[in-house]
Computed example of a mutant assay.
Amino acid sequence: MTIVVTTPTGHVGSRVVRLLLQAGVRPRVLVRDPARLDAATRERVDVRRGDLTDAAFVREATSGARTVFWVDPTPHTAEDPIETSERTASGIVDAARAGEVARVVLLSSIGAEKRGGAGHIDGLARIEERLDATGADTLHLRCGYFFTNLLLDLDGLARGVLTTSARPGMPLPWVAPRDIGEIVAARLLNDEWKGRVVQAVHGPEDLTYERIAEILTGALDRPIRLETVGDDDVRAALHSAGLPSSAVEGIVGMTAGTRDLIPEQPRDLLTTTPTTLAAWAYTHLRPLLRA
């Protein structure tokens, strides 16, 4: 059973690799810089060095695999991020269509079910559709907002401010990447699922930004004040940072397009994961802010 893992040094991928190794599986990992893997991991995995934006490399490196875990590597800051995400997935889509890959597990997102109007998330929606059309078994993991997104605003949190353009009282699922990795590993090791499957990963509870500020205040032992801004304020800040207009709209659209989203998959036993924001923030955010 050959399992391929993309982005093996990322928040989710690194956890997937560790769990597969502990399960006795030697995964094939696709990585641009093998030096980013720790030495112990590098010795135990099958390393294929290359760029995920190179469709020929992806197709060759995944050929013959039973299951591939595909993570779109396109940064939100890329020019034309939606089109870039779709184009980058061409290698794995072609491999699945040709029967060179039997199954694909896609790291998708809530909002992809809208099939449009959700900024860069639309890129994941297009990848879902293209994989569905290949005839391969496909599993789309539609995840909530990553706790690690808060790391992007360390400077603000250090000043005691949590900034968002989302509705402050609108609850949405938030999840720890580690928990996502555990579900991914379980699905990769499970050889029974067939066809097209969608599974949400919603974390332990839906959270409003008002509640997030309260949780962070307790976990970080410092007052965190919520500050809401408008979409145009976000646009202005991103343009001033030099981002192209297509990237700006891709970023703004992710929040604007999911502002009133009710995820397609309900919260239940299968979609709920255990790690709380308070526990994650105490373990990860608190040391960073103290430093």
Results as ranks from 00 to 15, higher is better:
5 V>A: 02
8 P>S: 12
10 G>Y: 10
11 H>K: 14
14 S>M: 09
20 L>D: 02
20 L>N: 01
21 L>N: 09
24 G>V: 10
30 L>A: 00
32 R>E: 05
33 D>M: 07
37 L>V: 08
40 A>P: 05
42 R>Y: 10
43 E>N: 05
45 V>F: 01
49 R>E: 14
50 G>R: 03
53 T>S: 09
54 D>L: 15
56 A>Y: 07
58 V>M: 00
58 V>H: 00
59 R>L: 05
60 E>G: 15
61 A>V: 06
63 S>Y: 08
63 S>W: 11
66 R>N: 05
67 T>F: 08
67 T>I: 13
74 T>K: 10
79 E>F: 05
85 S>N: 12
86 E>G: 14
88 T>A: 13
88 T>W: 08
90 S>L: 14
93 V>T: 10
96 A>Y: 02
96 A>F: 00
102 A>D: 11
104 V>Q: 02
108 S>N: 08
108 S>Q: 07
108 S>T: 07
112 A>G: 08
113 E>Y: 02
114 K>I: 03
119 G>T: 02
119 G>S: 02
123 G>P: 14
124 L>D: 03
127 I>D: 03
127 I>L: 06
136 A>K: 03
139 L>K: 09
140 H>I: 04
140 H>E: 03
143 C>N: 14
144 G>E: 04
144 G>C: 13
150 L>D: 03
151 L>R: 14
152 L>Y: 15
155 D>R: 09
158 A>T: 13
158 A>G: 14
161 V>C: 09
161 V>T: 13
162 L>W: 04
162 L>R: 01
166 A>K: 00
171 P>G: 04
171 P>R: 01
172 L>N: 04
173 P>Y: 01
173 P>W: 04
174 W>N: 06
177 P>Y: 12
182 E>N: 13
183 I>V: 12
185 A>S: 13
191 D>H: 10
191 D>N: 14
192 E>S: 15
194 K>M: 12
194 K>V: 14
195 G>Q: 10
198 V>Q: 06
199 Q>A: 11
202 H>F: 01
202 H>D: 03
203 G>W: 00
204 P>Q: 15
204 P>E: 14
205 E>N: 08
205 E>I: 04
212 I>W: 01
213 A>H: 06
214 E>A: 12
216 L>C: 09
222 R>H: 09
223 P>M: 11
228 T>I: 02
233 D>A: 15
234 V>R: 05
234 V>F: 08
235 R>W: 10
239 H>V: 11
239 H>I: 07
241 A>W: 02
242 G>S: 11
243 L>Q: 13
244 P>H: 09
244 P>W: 06
244 P>G: 11
245 S>H: 10
250 G>S: 06
250 G>R: 04
252 V>L: 10
253 G>F: 05
253 G>K: 05
259 R>M: 09
259 R>S: 11
259 R>T: 06
260 D>F: 03
260 D>E: 11
261 L>C: 05
262 I>D: 12
264 E>F: 01
265 Q>L: 12
267 R>I: 04
270 L>H: 15
271 T>V: 14
272 T>I: 07
274 P>N: 14
277 L>N: 01
278 A>D: 07
278 A>N: 05
278 A>I: 01
279 A>C: 02
280 W>P: 00
285 L>R: 02
287 P>H: 07
288 L>Q: 14
290 R>H: 13
